[in-house]
Structure formats: structure tokens, C-alpha cells
Design a protein around this nucleic acid. Structure first.
Lengths: 212, 212
DNA sequence: GTCCCTATTGGCAGCCTGCCAGTAAGCCGA
DNA sequence: TCGGCTTACTGGCAGGCTGCCAATAGGGAC
């Protein structure tokens, strides 16, 4: 026997499976260190494959990175969306309080992913990156507008206000998870109270100032 | 005469002068394209020097970039700080309304720099970058706390709230300058109203929820 | 057991950064 | 006015990293 049945040097996975595996590895590394400090060879080795395969699946390092960010941003957003629609079908339209509570739970559960996602952004002035984040935020704003029952057509300023509130929410959540200056309950109170307060107290004024 | 007085191939500038020149060139490029898409040779050529000189002055490409961002972030912040102290010495303590108005004027005047600064941020998870932006925001928060006359010692939650408001303000300003969904006057109304409203309406509630 | 598809490898070419030894601009004292 | 000296500035080399592609070999189909 010349053929001593050699063990396979590498295993052949299904396309999607390998893709997911590489993506997960890349995500782990990119959330730890900035883009430039992670090399493709490092990702490849961590995933147990060669560099060439990364390019086979994702084309370029940058597009792999974009894929990771997209993943990071989408997962929390989608979780909330799913949870909200589930809640809606169970007990009618979800209230604002319920939506905020849900949001906090999801963020708490995906703490690392969420922090990475909101501070992933905008390498200098990268258009593609900017678009991914902006679109996710815009989607969230749409959801919020729906839950609050705002009439976006008559009051386009509502979306701007909600986007502003989004910035507020991100920063407040950082105060909670990163800088530990607030508790979850305090964050809840702030988020629950801030937006309705502004909608009631400021939005009419802002609307009547149109064109100035 | 063998020596036909050859014109100097390059001119020798003073240390600080050359440094400023390179920095300005780098800023122009980095505000247009992301970090990775700008090469040192490009910066060098645009500045009319060689690549080696960049490293002579700034050591590494990354530290040149950090210098640019620091510059970008500091200039608007410092402008407002200066203007505020000037206003204060003229007519006593500045009011919140006056502070907001000032802020808007400064931002409007430095529109490009400001937009670049707030979206320059956080290359992936770059500590140094993060620190620069965070420190600038923290400084702004301090200023706001002072203008509003909040007692930070007794109410540490005030700073968290103000930071949250900072996120709101950044996003709202984007709505004005970038997405053009709000006018300057609308932004003014929102900024003037939002924070005092939250301080009066939410802060007490948040404080009494300490430890939860 | 054989064939074939394609997932996977391995190495080459080009670019870019960091570095350093050498060169020359231009001020300064004689 | 002229030589000397400081140091701003240049030019090219070395290492590393990305993008690419032809060759190889799992492993399922038949």
C-alpha cells in the first residue's frame, strides 16, 4: 500500500457555512481593534483558513468590514423590530413604554454588539459606512414614529425630532453601559419621558416656525 | 564662472510654519476621503514636500491623522468657549438662550469643520481617537452645566443628561446642515427648549431613582 | 469506484508605510 | 563677504499587507 490514507488537510464547508464562520471571526476581531490594526491574514488564521479564501468570499478587506458592520447594526435593530411586531400581534399596538423597555432589554442582551455598532462608524468620511449606519437609524426612527402614532406626512419635522432623540438615546445608553453613570432604570425614565415631552412641548412650536 | 547660481531646489521653512502647512494640507484631504484612502505620498505631494518630511514632523501617518482630528474638534469648541467668556465679561453671566445662539452661529460659520469633526469619529474602536472626541464633548458638557447653573456635585446625573443632550444636539444639527430637514430657527427652538425641559421635567425623577 | 464541481490553497505583483543616512538651505559670527 | 554649522529636507531601501489567479484536492453525485 503506497496510499496511507492521508487525513484531509482541510475540510470543505458549504458556501454559506464558511461565509458565516469567516464573518463571525472577522466580527470578533473588528470589534476589538480598529480596521487598520486588523490584517486579513490575521482574520484568515483565526478562522483557520487562508487569506485567499477571504477574498474569494468577500472580494476585498473593506467589503468584508462593511459586511461585519452591517451585521452588527442590523441584528439589534431587527431583534427589536421582531419583538415589537410579536408584541403587537399579541396585545394590540405596543405602547411607547413597552417599546422602550423592549429596546433596553435587547441592548442589554447584545451589549457588546450594540456598543461596537454605534461607535463602529464613519471612518473619516466613508460614504458606504455612513450609509449603513444612517439607514439603520432611519429605520429605527420609522419604527418610533409608528409606535408614537405621529403623522409624518403632515409634520415632517417629527422625523427630524425623532432622529435627534436617537442621538440622545445613543449617548444616554453609553452613559449607562460604558461610563456607568446611570442605571438601567434611570435610562428607562429618561427615554420614556424625553421624547413625549418634546413632542408635546416643542414640536408645535417648531412646526409654526417653518420657513424661518 | 562655473557656478551659475542655481536656484534652490526647495525652500526651507521655519519648523512651525512647515508643520502648519502640512497639517492644513492633510486636513483638506482627510475631510474629503477616509483615512485609508489617503496615502502619505498624496499628502506630501499636495503639500509640495516629500513623504520623509511627514514622518520627520509627525512620526506616523496615524499620529498625523490624530493631530488633524484634534485640530478639527478643538477649533469650534474653543471658538464657543472664547465667545462665551467674552460675552460673560461684557454683560454678566450668559443666558442659555444666548449660549445656544452663539453655538449656532459658530457652527454655521465653521460648517465644514464641524461636520467633519463630529463624523470624523471613532475609527472602528480606536482608543486615541475616541478619547479626543470624548474629551471635547466632555468639555462642552462642562460649559453647558456652568451656563445652566446646575449643581454637578449634588446631582451627578446632570452631566449624563447633558451628555445625552449633546447627542441630541449633534443629530439635530445634522438635520439642519446635512439633511436640510430643519431651519436654523427650528434648531434654535429645539435646542433652547429641550434641555431646560428635561432638567425640569425628568432630572428630579431620575435622581430619585438612584440605585435602581 | 470514478468523475466532476468548486471550495480552498499558495504564491506572485504592486503599493504603502516607516526608517535612516546623506544633502543642502540659510542664519551667524568673524 | 565668506566659511561654518545647525537642522530642514530629500531619496531610496526593507518589511508588510492587499488583491489576484492558476493550480490543487475535498467530497458528493452517479
Amino acid at each position: 500500500m503506497t496510499a496511507t490514507k492521508t487525513a484531509p488537510r482541510w475540510s470543505r464547508l458549504e458556501h454559506d457555512e464558511r461565509r458565516e464562520q469567516i464573518l463571525a471571526t472577522a466580527r470578533a476581531l473588528f470589534t476589538q481593534r480598529p480596521y487598520g490594526a486588523v490584517s486579513t491574514i490575521e482574520i484568515a488564521e483565526a478562522a483557520g483558513v487562508t487569506r485567499g479564501l477571504l477574498h474569494h468570499y468577500f472580494g476585498t478587506k473593506r467589503s468584508l468590514y462593511l459586511e461585519v458592520v452591517k451585521d452588527l447594526v442590523d441584528s439589534p435593530v431587527l431583534s427589536v423590530l421582531n419583538a415589537l411586531t410579536a408584541a403587537a400581534s399579541e396585545e394590540g399596538a405596543p405602547t411607547w413604554e413597552a417599546g422602550v423597555a423592549l429596546w433596553l432589554d435587547v441592548v442589554e442582551a447584545n451589549e457588546d454588539a450594540w456598543l461596537a455598532a454605534i461607535s463602529a462608524g464613519e471612518t473619516g468620511s466613508d460614504r458606504a459606512m455612513h450609509d449603513i449606519l444612517d439607514e439603520a437609524r432611519e429605520r429605527t426612527a420609522t419604527q418610533v414614529i409608528a409606535v408614537l402614532g405621529l403623522d409624518e406626512k403632515r409634520v415632517p419635522e417629527a422625523r427630524a425630532l425623532v432622529r435627534g432623540f436617537g442621538g440622545f438615546a445613543e449617548e444616554i445608553t453609553r452613559e449607562w453601559l460604558q461610563r456607568r453613570r446611570l442605571t438601567k432604570e434611570q435610562v428607562r425614565l429618561l427615554l420614556v419621558g424625553a421624547l413625549p415631552g418634546m413632542v408635546a412641548g416643542l414640536l408645535p412650536e417648531v412646526v409654526s416656525a417653518r420657513g424661518l
